[in-house]
Nucleic acid binder design. Structure first.
Length: 1027
RNA sequence: GGGCGUUUAGCUCAGUUGGUUAGAGCGCCUUCCUCACACGGAGGAGGUCACAGGUUCGAGUCCUGUAACGCCCACCA
């Protein structure tokens, strides 16, 4: 065979084998009654942008399961696709349009913009799917779906129609989060709060016709003074005294149970409250009475009369005790407005400018209006005071601009019943969320049962299938849609119109003769289509064979931030549409954080592109590294480095340099560009990849495996298939087969429980520390011995073969590369009788479809493992002495072991391995062994190893070392004796533990004696001048 | 304000139902380019397991409290 390179070359293998697998159709799945199904739907990545390391993790974990289940004989389907991500994608494309062409979406028009977004989608979908392929993902690409494609669109239409017909969808005026830049409503989940520096303005509203003893104005505090233009009232608590009492009682209750740290703060609050009672209560009570009397205040600037109202929303313990009520622009005030029957005065246009209700401020944007209002108030002497204050300001997640609460007409899904079904599915265990703690946030969120706002004023998405008609009578509709069950309608009394919903086909604007239908312009929330993903991709609403076979899917693997947005809604629509849960398990994987504990994101500049990792370390290393880091509780912290394109050295990424367009390499002094490079001279520089050295472990591991394979392949000449005779097996054979069986079991169980890190560590340890460090080393001699060679080859090939199969789901490329070579060099490998009857077991066309190894419990051999452990101990002792005495590797040393005869019998057969693995020749075994005059020793449990060092030894150093050891042992012995002298320990601890402690003590004492003896011998040697 | 998570070697993390002298990888030190592998081999240094109490014969592990960090949720003028 041709010589293999010393280093595994991932790039070539990746390209070759992915193309091969795909051409063989291994990824494609069809319903197959002869096999059990195993299916996963991908969390469809947004077409907003390219995938990052979080996606790489998510998809690696899915592919590992899919590949393993495929090998286990399941008919596996991994359903791929992408999400149109309505608002996110439109926002990205609009922003770019504005930047690069100075065009707004209105200049382009709906059709034009949607066409642009489609082009974006095509580009990014291609890039995303390409990234998944480079990672080795075995999705069934023939089934790739997109949440906006005709099949998904049909599912959306059917769901909407069904819900509308079932009266689960309604239209209503609600205060929504309004994004003035994108000009759409966004849900609470698309809003983030950010602390910004702001002000707290105190404004005086004059009282109309104050009577004697009454204040002549009422002061309110606000962070948003411009909203006063929409004020409908000023509220004061109806019973301020009682409210203050209540607040004080609550604070006192908290004071009683509070820790020392909080107490001063609480006490201060109580004092404030009392002060307030003294100074403000009288006036508040007067105001409450005035409110009951229907008195009014004068709204400054607009000179509108607004009522004083008594409402519990006004907390006497806060602010001035009075609060302005702006029902159309504040969620709480909205509630007050409803309670008090106040007018809802909207002062905003959809673009964030003020409308005619704002009088002279009409046309100003909010920021300008605020300045003008404040200035005018000040001029009129109505601004009582201004304070600086930090404000938690709501921002749109998409446009990053401040959210304005706005009263608009929106569509909603009623959640009460639907949410309950989704809660039940998790509560009763039909859907299992792992780790379990995440079930709590799922249930908490659903239990609020807040109606789901599903309309978005966007152009990119599923247009709501509703047509409005104002003029027709119900008889007209009945006539027009006679005999059709795919059209339903309801009366919208508020606007005096019909809402007509069509299940599948769009309605023509003249569908009702003599009347004009107008289609709803809004589109649906992107999660509406994502919610259907598990069944829409399988063909619902058709009863397809796929739906019958693959649904419910087995597991959903996703990250924790979309448990509510997505997971909960999938469960609910699955139950509603299909009548069955969408998946049995939900596995929530860790988040990837940078070295500062911050989440990775492109906008922060700390994001890592999986392709950069693949280019530097290989796809297998990416995958294995991620699996290795996927533990149950810990997020993955990953310090990030730039890789200098000039000298390949790594430069730590800091918060400072991660936002720069160019970075200077501290090693070679040359500059390179980053993702921020925009100016031509920045862009001209070579780009520095962003990577993390946390993948080195995995890269090195792949290389280690490659080299162990290389060794195996180099030694398979003359291989003959066939079973091995049990009597031909050497101790190391039995040992490695025993370990192999255990590891097979561990890996299988770990993956079944989504314990990826455990599976990876188990395989890593076995491959490196057992297979490479011991088995391969020990088998070397036999490979040169014609009589022993064949058995050695067979066990070696079998072990490597099994190891490759166990590793394949995690590192598919290198295992396939080796597997193929192994199939040529050692066909039909397998050690049992007969190894591979049909040849299919071991020498299939690809490791991808080879069977998953079965743990052979009969091969697990405790006795052999004990013998091996003793052997390894002695070996380590010899190497230890060689190391500490600085004896060169090539200098052979002699050693003897004093131990009982049973141990001697155990170790004697290992003699040749001491020679080959430690360059050490045994001179004696057993109880009779006497130490050479000048020797170094290591005392082990029931054994003492002597290395005869004659002229080699540095006696002074050895004595010093031993003295330190004695001190250490003294400490341990004292502690142990004390423990054993403790009567309650001896009485109450289990006998086995006590016995174990006694044995440990004896062992320590033996070690102590041995060390003391060695010191004496060495000193004696010195004093007699034997050196 | 509520909830969740984390805190173990310089760094990144394991540590199973409480039980001998707490582990790994990287980094560091010594040494070896020995015929699979320097992306390697051999050896070594390095930890009062965040802190304070408690339960227990025995606590990194269980309980309570404290602190720091992170995440999620929440309508406060």
């Amino acid at each position: 065979m041709t010589e293999l390179p010393k280093q595994y070359n991932p790039a070539a293998a990746q390209q070759r084998w992915y193309a091969f697998w795909e051409s063989q159709g291994f990824f494609h799945s069809e319903p197959n009654k002869a096999k059990k199904p195993y299916s996963i739907v991908i969390p469809p990545p947004n077409v907003t942008g390219a995938l990052h390391l979080g996606h790489a993790l998510n998809n690696t974990l899915q592919d590992i399961l899919i590949r393993q289940k495929r090998m286990q004989g399941f008919e596996t389907l991994w359903m791929p696709g992408t999400d149109h991500a309505g608002i996110a994608t439109q926002a990205v494309v609009e922003r770019r349009l504005l930047q690069e062409e100075k065009l707004s979406r209105h200049q382009l028009g709906r059709e034009g913009l949607v066409a642009r977004i489609w082009q974006w989608k095509i580009d990014y979908e291609k890039r995303i799917l390409g990234q998944l392929k480079e990672m080795g993902c075995t999705c069934d690409w023939q089934r790739t779906r997109f949440t906006l494609d005709p099949q998904c669109a049909r599912a959306v239409r059917h769901t909407f129609f069904k819900m509308f017909r079932d009266k689960l969808i309604y239209r209503g005026k609600r205060l929504v989060n309004w994004d003035t830049m994108l000009q759409t409503a966004v849900s609470d989940d698309e809003v983030f709060h950010e602390t910004v520096a702001g002000n707290f303005w105190y404004v005086n509203y004059p009282i109309i016709d104050p009577k004697p003893g009454e204040p002549n104005c009422v002061t309110v505090a606000t962070t948003r003074p411009e909203t006063m233009l929409g004020d409908a009232a000023v509220a004061v608590h109806p019973e301020p005294a009682a409210a203050l009492d209540k607040a004080e009682t609550e604070l006192k209750a908290r004071l009683d149970v509070a820790g020392a740290k909080e107490k001063p703060d609480l006490q201060k609050q109580i004092d404030d409250l009392r002060e307030r009672r003294r100074t403000m209560l009288g006036e508040l009570e007067t105001l409450a009475r005035m409110a009951r009397d229907g008195r009014k205040a004068q709204l400054p600037l607009l000179n509108r009369e607004i009522p004083l109202v008594a409402d519990v929303w006004a907390k006497p313990e806060l602010g001035t005790g009075c609060v302005k009520i702006t029902p159309a622009h504040d969620p709480n005030d909205y509630e007050v407005g409803l309670r008090q029957g106040l007018p809802m005065i909207n002062i905003l246009n959809l673009d964030g400018t003020l409308n005619e209700n704002a009088g002279p401020y009409k046309g100003l944007v909010i920021q300008k209006a605020r300045q003008a209002v404040v200035a005018d108030l000040e001029r009129q002497g109505l601004l009582a005071k201004t304070e600086d204050r930090e404000i938690e300001l709501a921002h749109s997640d998409r446009s990053k601009t401040p959210i304005e609460p706005l009263l608009t007409d929106q569509w909603f899904v009623k959640m009460d019943h639907l949410a309950q079904t989704a809660m039940d599915a998790v509560s009763d265990g039909r859907v299992k969320i792992l780790p379990e703690r995440y079930a709590k946030s799922y249930l908490d969120w659903l239990s609020e049962k807040r109606d789901w706002p599903i309309s978005r004023q966007l152009w990119w998405g599923h247009q709501i299938p509703i047509w409005y008609c104002k003029t027709a009578s119900e008889a007209d509709l009945q006539k027009a849609f006679a005999g059709r069950d795919d059209v339903v309608w309801y009366r919208d009394e508020q606007y005096g119109q019909w809402l007509i919903c069509a299940e599948e086909q769009d309605l023509d604007e003249s569908a009702v003769p003599g009347h004009k239908l107008v289609r709803e312009q809004d589109v649906l929330d992107t999660w509406f289509s994502s919610a259907l993903w598990p069944h829409s991709t399988l063909g619902w609403p058709e009863q397809t064979p796929e739906l019958a076979y693959y649904y419910p899917t087995n597991v959903l693997i996703t990250s924790r931030d979309i448990i509510t947005l997505w997971v909960a809604r999938m469960v609910l629509t699955g139950l509603y549409n299909v009548g069955e849960i969408p998946f049995h398990d939900v596995f929530i994987h860790p988040k990837i954080l940078d070295g500062y504990g911050e989440g990775m994101s492109k906008s922060k500049g700390n994001g890592v592109d999986p392709i950069d990792v693949i280019e530097k370390f290989g796809a297998d290393a990416l995958r294995f590294g991620l699996a290795y880091m996927t533990t149950e509780t810990q997020d993955i912290r990953m310090p990030v480095e730039f890789e200098c394109p000039h000298c390949d050295k790594l430069i730590e990424q800091t918060k400072a340099n991660r936002v720069l367009p160019r970075v200077k390499c501290k090693h070679c002094g040359k500059e390179f560009s980053t993702q921020w490079a925009e100016k031509p001279d920045d862009r001209a520089l070579p780009r520095g990849a962003v990577v993390s050295e946390r993948f080195e472990l995995a890269r090195n591991f792949c290389n280690k495996l490659w080299n162990a394979s290389r060794f195996t392949l180099m030694n398979l000449e003359g291989y003959m298939p066939g079973a091995v005779e049990d009597t031909d097996l050497m101790v190391e054979d039995r040992w490695i087969l025993s370990r192999l069986s255990t590891v097979t079991q561990e890996t299988t169980t770990a993956l079944a429980e989504y314990r990826y890190a455990d599976a990876a560590k188990s395989l890593y340890g076995f491959a490196w520390d057992e297979f490479c460090s011991f088995y391969v080393e020990m088998v070397k001699a036999r490979l040169g011995d014609p009589a022993a060679r064949l058995t050695a080859q067979r066990v070696l090939a079998h072990t490597l073969d099994t190891l490759l199969r166990l590793l394949h789901p995690m590192i598919p490329f290198v295992t396939e590369e080796v597997w193929q070579l192994l199939a040529e060099a050692a066909p039909q490998r397998g050690i049992e009788q007969p190894p591979c009857p049909s040849g299919e077991v071991c020498a299939g066309e690809s490791i991808m479809v080879a069977p998953w190894p079965q743990a052979d419990a009969a091969r697990q051999n405790a006795e052999i493992e004990v013998r091996f452990a003793r052997f390894q101990e002695v070996l380590r002792a010899i190497r230890d002495i060689r190391g500490r005495q600085n004896v060169p590797q090539r200098t052979q040393i002699n050693f003897a072991v004093r131990c009982d005869t049973a141990t001697a019998d155990l170790l004697k057969p290992m003699e040749p391995y001491f020679v080959s693995m430690a360059g050490a020749r045994p001179t004696g075994w057993g109880p009779e062994v006497t130490p050479p005059k000048l020797s170094a020793n290591v005392a082990l449990t029931g054994m003492e190893v002597f290395v005869d060092l004659a002229e080699l030894i540095d006696v002074g150093a050895e004595v010093e070392r031993k003295k330190q050891e004695i001190v250490r042992l003294d400490g341990l012995i004292t502690a142990k004796r004390k423990k054993l002298e403790n009567a309650s320990f001896v009485e109450r601890a289990p006998a086995a533990v006590v016995q174990g402690e006694r044995a440990a003590l004896k062992d320590l004492e033996d070690q102590h004696a041995a060390a003391t003896a060695v010191v004496e011998r060495l000193r004696g040697g010195l004093s007699r001048g034997d050196l």
